[in-house]
Design a protein around this nucleic acid. Structure first.
Length: 568
RNA sequence: GGCAGCGUAGCUCAGUGGUAGAGCAGGGGAAUCAUAAUCCCUUGGUCGGGGGUUCAAAUCCCUCCGCUGCUACCA
């Protein structure tokens, strides 16, 4: 049995995620995890909330809560929404967990021992009014190059020049607006990424043929431009504390930077998963010989690619311990909303909670994966969404299921008929489907989700074509046996459609499956022989007609949602 | 500014050297089991502009135009 380890980029704790966040990480990871389980492989799919850092502290402040309380609440919200979308996590952890704290500190100790961490003194902006150090972007002032008055300390939005907060003229806090700030020297740990350029390049080159151009080009760009050492600690309260035994306690009271501990939480979440039950061995998925046969696949948006091709691998390589590196990194572009970005502050676009409020998860899952931003950024519009949902889900799939089941009830007492034998039409559809299913399986294996959904749709279309050709409603008038064979085939088609659709639309797939017969927890992938797969239902089996599977989206709804969600 | 990606039918996209494709939308027809759902046929593109390499270019090279993203302390 193959073993597959799947992680998706960790959603940041700060607020509900939008559809663009979903489609690039958690959703494709879930589809892939379901597919691998369906094939019968030993699959572990973990995710977590990424909880540390300044934005979390500030969001808690704004909510008037302790940051730990805030994170605990937000974690529950994100967990519930993820479950609402049908994410089949084996574990949804927290980067603030005990397990991750221990692991993060252990990684840091190993890096320190191996000489890959060094202490450097940096100049940090401290705000008296806010009683805290400010990250560069939270310092604003006048740009020394162009005179723009609201330049951020990391970069001037007006002239796009990269800045240092100490460059700014009349700097002030972006939080309080206070100019009572000072530059303080502060010691920080730097990860010597520069020492790993050749090892990283070697690793990346071994994947020159199996990683996408998007991922490879981002990874190589960072190496080509000269990898800089990176500060991995911050002057904050909320985070994994730097242990006292590193650098003789010089970093006492500081925490690790969120981008250091967040990817380690992939391992941490696995540890949490194991701690939640006996007989689970977390290290067998990650470490040494026991994890040798594990294939590790990561899903993420393109913004996260550098951290997974450079930052996290350096942490692992620098530990000089046999932790697992990713075998496959699947990166996605952005999903836009009417040509612009999804925006929390502008209330523009659709967020997970609102999405589930207006339509069931499967509608979103199917549409988003069918239009996943794989090759380029893609675009969400309500018009397109409605046309895809109405045509593919309601008309092509939903109506197919409905028409054959209703006919079975009208003419065959709601049972799988036992009369008649399969003829040329039945053999033809079995043959077509064996080709298409093979393609579909290959696309999923290759994580080409747009092509996979197009093929899945073509499989449903083949069912409609067959039924039109076999026309049991015509034959029933003079040749009941022939009509019976067609109905039997139709029901078998419904049955396997439920199986193949399960990774994308798990809820609808289960309803369809249950209309024929009770479904197992994991709906298995029918194996190769299509002739057999399409002749497996026992004659006499009672089938039921489910409620309408997918209702159509009307023009009034499109207009209402455009108004509500800020589409033009 | 640098780097990367994109520009193919009205729309969303596939196609990376060998006679331009799919889905949707549009037009015509068949069928009447079904959520007026399905099936068949079909209209439609000088593949962003220009130049070059080649027997052959959407595909390779150069150049121009347009759009988007990234640019290291927002994640």
């Amino acid at each position: 049995m193959r073993r597959i380890l799947i992680t998706s980029a960790l959603p940041y704790i700060n607020g509900v995620k939008h559809l663009g966040n979903l489609v690039g990480s958690m959703l494709p990871a879930d589809v892939y995890a379901r597919f691998q389980r369906s094939l019968g492989h030993d699959t572990l799919f973990v995710c977590a909330t990424d909880e540390h850092g300044t934005p979390a502290e500030l969001a808690a402040l704004e909510a008037g809560q302790e940051v730990a309380t805030y994170c605990a609440e937000q974690h529950e919200i994100q967990k519930r929404l993820g479950e609402g979308f049908g994410f089949s996590w084996d574990w949804f952890g927290r980067s603030s967990s005990e397990e991750n704290r221990t692991l993060t500190q252990e990684f840091a100790r190993a890096l320190w021992r191996n000489g890959y961490l060094e202490v450097r003194t940096t100049r940090q902006v401290y705000s008296h009014a806010d009683k805290r150090f400010l990250p560069d972007r939270y310092v604003i002032g006048t740009c020394p190059h162009c005179g723009y008055e609201r330049a951020r300390g990391d970069q001037c939005e007006n002239c796009t020049r990269v800045l240092d907060p100490t460059d700014l003229i009349s700097p002030r806090s972006a939080l309080s607006g206070s100019a009572e700030i000072e530059i303080r020297d502060s010691a920080h740990l730097f990860l010597r990424q520069s020492a790993f350029v050749s090892r990283l390049r070697e690793w990346i080159d071994t994947h020159a043929l199996d990683w996408s151009p998007l991922v490879l080009s981002i990874a190589r760009k960072w190496l080509d431009e000269g990898l800089q050492d990176r500060g991995i600690t911050r002057d904050l309260q909320w985070g994994v504390p730097v242990p006292e035994d590193i650098a003789e306690g010089k970093l006492s009271g500081k925490v690790f930077y969120v981008w250091f501990d967040a990817p380690i939480e992939y391992i941490g979440a696995t540890h949490e998963w194991a701690n939640a039950s006996s007989n689970r061995r977390w290290k067998d998925w990650w470490f040494g010989a026991a994890a040798q046969d594990v294939r590790y696949v990561q899903f993420m948006g393109k913004d996260n690619v550098p951290f997974h091709t450079v930052g996290f691998p350096v942490t692992i390589m620098g530990s000089e311990q046999p932790w697992k590196l990713a075998d496959q990194i699947k990166g996605f572009n952005w999903l836009n909303y009417y040509g612009g970005k999804f925006s929390t502050s502008a209330k523009r676009g659709v967020f997970m909670d609102a999405a589930l409020e207006i339509l069931p998860a499967d509608y979103w899952r199917y549409y988003l994966m069918a239009n996943a931003p794989e090759g380029a950024d893609s675009n969400f519009t309500w018009e397109h969404f409605a046309s895809v949902v109405n045509k593919d889900l309601a008309d092509v799939l939903g109506n197919f299921v409905n028409r054959i089941l209703k006919f079975t009830h009208a003419r065959f007492d709601g049972r799988v008929p036992d009369e008649g034998v399969y003829g040329a039409d039945e053999h033809a559809v079995a043959e077509e489907l064996s080709v298409r299913v093979n393609q579909y399986t290959n696309y999923l294996e290759a994580m080409e989700f747009r092509k996979a959904t197009a093929e899945l749709r073509a499989i449903w279309v083949a069912g409609n074509e067959y039924l039109t050709k076999a026309a049991p409603w015509t034959h029933i008038k003079h040749d009941r046996a022939r009509a019976a064979a067609a109905v039997r085939m139709g029901l078998n088609l419904v049955h396997i459609f439920a199986h193949y659709a399960w990774p994308f639309i798990p809820n609808a797939a289960r309803i369809i499956h249950n209309a024929i017969q009770p479904s197992p927890e994991v709906i298995p992938w029918p194996d190769g022989d299509m002739g057999q797969a399409l002749n497996q239902l026992e004659p006499g089996l009672k089938v039921t007609v489910p409620e309408v599977l997918f209702s159509k989206i009307g023009d009034e709804q499109i207009e209402a949602w455009k108004a509500r969600f800020g589409g033009e």
